[in-house]
Design a protein around this nucleic acid. Structure first.
Lengths: 342, 342
DNA sequence: CCGAAAATCCGAAACGTTTCGGAAAGTTAA
DNA sequence: TTAACTTTCCGAAACGTTTCGGATTTTCGG
């Protein structure tokens, strides 16, 4: 292994000055700096992260901790996250690693251990849930982190999120404007913050229009095609009148909804109008739907850059208001929404 | 952060002795060891891995380095690997992390950097390919690693592999025994060692039976359902006689083959016999095929334990012959194979 | 040409752990 | 009682880096 000492000897300087040169400190001659970097490069020097972390507290490594769950290995959304974040941190000269915790482990204990280990600079948290214990814990230990999502009850930490309340509110408002009164919601699992916010947006907008949300028109669960199919079937098959408009929390659900409607001989948008939220994931193209699906559009892939940026900011000690952001979606009108007929 | 010094002060011993107690060295009183561990536990002490690695060379962290590729986020096989390895290393008190390299990075440079960083104890390599440059490099730098697979031309490193030559040879031999002469192979991408070995097994067995392998009956590519479908179609639709038996390198391919045969009005096993290799991945159950699919059975999930074990062995400096293994598959006969009729 | 300021450099300490060599106390054999 | 072990402990050095404080040289205004 080639160390600072080797470089120093080879370039005829002290270890101190070599370190300062490589780290772009101010008091080193420009010509010297160049020479040092050249020599270090040709020697194949790589700073020993353990040593660096030990003395400076910085390792340049951040982690995403994920706990295994049953659907884990088929959750391609998750790997989209890993790939995206990895690229962004890499671009910033940092290392991003995935630490997979076991199903039976206490997640807080895992963080505790990793922090105690002292080789990470910070964490990215995804899938924030109501009363997320991780946030309270990390905040308490003063470890830098950034959250993909945000909690309704506290926001004193770095985060990047889309305006999920508005995602649902916007869609519902559009339905209302077209005369729909029986509007349904097929949402994600209730304890995730994004699902919660969408549910709130859904309820608030209906209430503001003088409509009491009807629990028969609301389903919350795993956002799969199958779940969308089942939910739509249940809502429309039961006695009483089914919804004339449906908001789906992702495109997969909408896929299931389309299939269910087809199976029942109903048509989009004549019988039922549909809007879905589109994360712009690969393998799902709402424009290819028949008819093309109108969406609230907010590519997940736009999150990786700010998430990385804000975590780096948090590590660098930036003030909170510079490392928080809520983004609004775009609405893309296609052919799946029409005025109410029933 | 609570350090060894804190524990030492709290328990009234020297830092040295506390360290030795926690690491189960011999020259510490049993009663003392217990006391030390109690105190360390109640103080929430976690050894600082950076410091440990610096002095002892051991961090307890191993990594899997994967380079991004187009299908990455939908490659659930890969995440099966990550999940499996993670669990096994965790069980051994080690940490397993995933480092995702970018598409445009030179993979050797990535390893070079990670090694220079000096915070990892070793690597797991998957998807070994012909003349895999990673193996030569790691071997040269004397960094511990274990390979999932093995190279035909060199085997002087720790590995775990199944007998891929025999996987194909066994299947082909069974076809031959039933009178088949025109036997096809739908394989994985040619430069991966497992695909290469299976191709060899396929050719060798045919030749031993006096049959010259016919390139029209061989396809090598991405192991997807689509690829299986296309390949079967091409082989059977072209002029001349198509194969009467097909060996598929995984169950997805076989799925495609079944669909192609159905589309062409051919039946399994009357018109074409089919055997596939079954890694026993979730979401694919060969017994549920119509007719049930006969397979060479070798669950991928059995690899994680030996891979972890052998990498730990390599780190501990065990001799090579204790950390190499080639496993043979089981053949499971179901309803997709019959004697040749054409 | 002098003194001060700026530019450039360096030695030594520190981070938290493991380990080497040895010390002190207790035990056993003669 | 003494010599030789055993058992149990400890001080100090080392790993490779960053950083604090100061030292040395160069530059420049007057």
């Amino acid at each position: 292994m080639v160390t600072l000492k080797d470089v120093a000897r080879s370039v005829g300087l002290s270890v101190t000055q070599v370190s300062r040169a490589l780290n772009d400190h101010s008091d080193v001659n420009e010509e010297t700096r160049r020479r040092v970097k050249d020599v270090a490069g040709s020697l194949g020097y790589e700073p020993n992260i353990s040593a660096r972390k030990l003395v400076s507290g910085r390792s340049g490594i951040v982690a995403l901790v994920e706990q295994k769950y049953p659907r884990f290995t088929s959750d391609f959304l998750f790997f989209e996250i890993v790939a995206g974040l990895s690229a962004e941190f890499s671009r910033r000269g940092m290392q991003f690693v995935l630490h997979l915790a076991q199903e039976d482990e206490d997640i807080i204990a895992v963080y505790q251990k990793l922090i105690g280990n002292g080789s990470l600079d910070g964490f990215v948290l995804t899938k924030s849930s109501r009363d997320d214990p991780r946030i309270a814990y990390l905040k308490g230990r003063k470890v830098p982190f950034v959250v993909h999502g945000r909690l309704p009850e506290r926001t004193d930490y770095p985060y990047f999120d889309i305006d999920n309340h508005f995602v649902a509110a916007d869609s519902v408002a559009r339905f209302l404007a077209l005369g729909h009164r029986r509007i349904g919601l097929i949402n994600g699992i209730a304890h995730f913050t994004y699902a919660l916010a969408r549910y709130q947006g859904y309820c608030d907008t209906l209430k503001a229009a003088g409509i009491e949300p009807d629990p028969r028109y609301v389903r919350q669960g795993d956002m799969t095609e199958e779940f969308g199919y089942r939910s739509a079937l249940e809502m429309l098959v039961g006695e009483g009148e089914g919804p004339t408009a449906l908001f789906c929390s992702n495109v997969l659900i909408a896929q299931g909804v389309y299939r269910a409607l087809k199976d029942m001989g109903l048509s989009v948008p004549r019988d039922v109008s549909v809007i879905a939220h589109d994360d712009a994931l690969p393998n799902t193209d709402p424009a290819a739907f028949e008819p093309p699906l109108s969406v609230t559009y907010s590519p997940l892939s736009k999150s990786w850059d700010p998430l990385a940026e804000y975590l780096c900011g948090a590590i660098a000690g930036k003030p909170l208001d510079e490392i928080q952001e809520v983004l609004r979606h775009d609405f893309i009108a296609r052919g799946s929404v029409d005025k109410a007929r029933r």
